[in-house]
Amino acid sequence: MYAQRVFYAKCLIWVFAFIPILRLVWLGVNDDLTANPVEFVERSTGTWALVFLLLSLSMTPIRLLTKQVWQIQLRRLLGLWMFAYACLHITTYVWLDYGFVWADIAKDIIKHPYVIVGFTAYLLTIPLALTSNSAMIKRLKSKWKTLHQAVYLISILVILHFWWLVKKDVTEPFYYAAVLCILLGIRVYYKAIASKNKL
């Protein structure tokens, strides 16, 4: 019944998801990636990974608020785009920023709290991406859900990563943190109601 709607929504996500990449390529070709292109690409890919993370976390709140369920089928695609941007982000860091100098990268990760939390968040997304296909969902059964609840931890680590990286003006990470709080808050609220009704 919703198959067509899901299909169109997925098409839209694919188009939308390619825009930031194409923009970076376009700016890169035109030598317009600001005075600090590496930082610009790092920031851009990181921000879009966060946006897709928050979008994937929005599907359940939409269900809770609207009682609609079809959009849950978009969650995997949104999550995988988050992973794709996270991969671009970390590639930018390892390659463009640190030029594969592993000793310096290791030092940077160990010494700087914002890098540790960001790197940890990235590592945690890998098993989620690997187990996102239908076969793995079937195979892992109830364990799959437990495993994928790691996304909550990832989202908090990512916000910390952004917050700690900022020198002084935390306005931008604050907005993202506020959105995450709302998304998690809705879940907690409905969970509280549900457990109350059970009693």
Partner: peptide
């Protein structure tokens, strides 16, 4: 605490 100081861009 935030930035590597041994190298620069």
């Amino acid at each position: 605490p935030r930035w590597t100081q041994s190298s620069e861009k």
